[in-house]
Design a binder for these strands. Structure first.
Lengths: 189, 189
DNA sequence: CTTGACAGTGAACAAATGTTTACTATATAA
DNA sequence: TTATATAGTAAACATTTGTTCACTGTCAAG
């Protein structure tokens, strides 16, 4: 299989977080001429798995991307090579690593929007929230994860749970927004 | 700030998916002696942001990791430098990239386990499921995402929705498992 | 005032890198 | 059969790489 070497390369990258040098690929692919590697790499560049910017080799997003399959309800063979889209998880989830952090969720106040106890939430710091955003906030010195809302009559912002059993939270003194929830992830097992 | 350069480096890596060479860092950091870079890099190695394996530089997981903060209910300042854990999303979510793919979910049959319409699910191919796993399966030629169950009395496997409004699915002819759901992700906005 | 740590410069260099050119073997298609 | 594309080898080489050594200026602590 022609793909096998690419798989080896991907595994190498996954493990070492960098591409191997040509000499390293030599060993990796069990070849004995650097020129073989040179040709193979050039083919991958043509196929857009790798690219070269002023002589420096780096992987493209195609290199990392996982196939993203569509609608599961439609009866046709979704695993076919067609109708494939690709997605790189890290790029998809994290816009700005320097202002993002993860937060392990506790409590059941956000079950209505599918955020459960134990889920991990990606929070982007310091963003001014839009009405309706899920925010990490400190309301009267109490930390919480809620929906950011505006009361038009009272001209104040308040927080709302996504679970009918919790009442809306109006700040007595202070409502401070620390970040906006960009995504949730949940791992099974 | 001493961290600024590390931020620059992280951005470079995020963009180019590789570390810059020392000469490239020279420009990146606005320095004029390679030896300066050499020393800076060595400090980062000491601090475990980078590492060197037979002379080859690569980032550690600390380099990528986002801070993972704990229990939000507990009233103390969770954004403090302490009680920090770190997590690398890609590593956390994807064990084997070569057998994993993503699937955009449609339908409301799995809302009970917090999988909603539009969510993206990470599926690992060809795994033999454990009872209770969420599986991507073909039941009587129909594709679906359900919970894998075993009927002890009838000695057959069947599929169960995570939504009371859908009945359990017993295969008339064939139940074929294509993969196991390892994680869900949902992006807001 | 001095000492030492810290941050940076500059030059020199062996080793490794990516690239080029020329050649071989094998299989496939005309 | 004869081409011709594909996959690989081998050697040679300029360029770039990471590293070492010697040096300068600055700032804070003793």
């Amino acid at each position: 299989m022609a793909n096998t070497r690419l798989e080896i390369l991907k595994k190498y990258y996954k493990k070492n977080r960098r591409l191997p040098s040509y000499s390293e690929m030599l060993k990796l692919f069990n070849l004995s001429s650097k020129n073989s590697v040179f040709k193979i790499v050039n083919k991958w560049i043509d196929e857009n798995f790798l690219k070269k910017i002023n002589g420096k080799l780096s992987p493209t997003s195609k290199f990392f991307a996982l196939p993203l399959l569509g609608n599961i309800k439609a009866g046709f063979p979704i695993l076919a090579e067609e109708n494939k889209n690709y997605l790189t998880l890290d790029d998809y989830l994290i816009e700005d690593p320097s202002t993002s952090f993860l937060l392990k969720v506790s409590g059941d106040s956000m079950t209505g929007v599918g955020i459960f106890e134990g889920d991990i939430v990606i929070v982007e710091k310091k963003k001014i929230p839009t009405i309706g955003d899920i925010v990490l906030a400190q309301i009267d010195r109490e930390w919480t994860l809620k929906i950011f809302k505006k009361d038009r009559k009272k001209h104040t912002n308040y927080l709302e749970a996504a679970n009918p059993k919790y009442p809306p939270l109006y700040p007595l003194q202070e409502l401070q927004i620390y970040g906006v929830v960009k995504a949730v992830i949940r791992k099974f097992n």
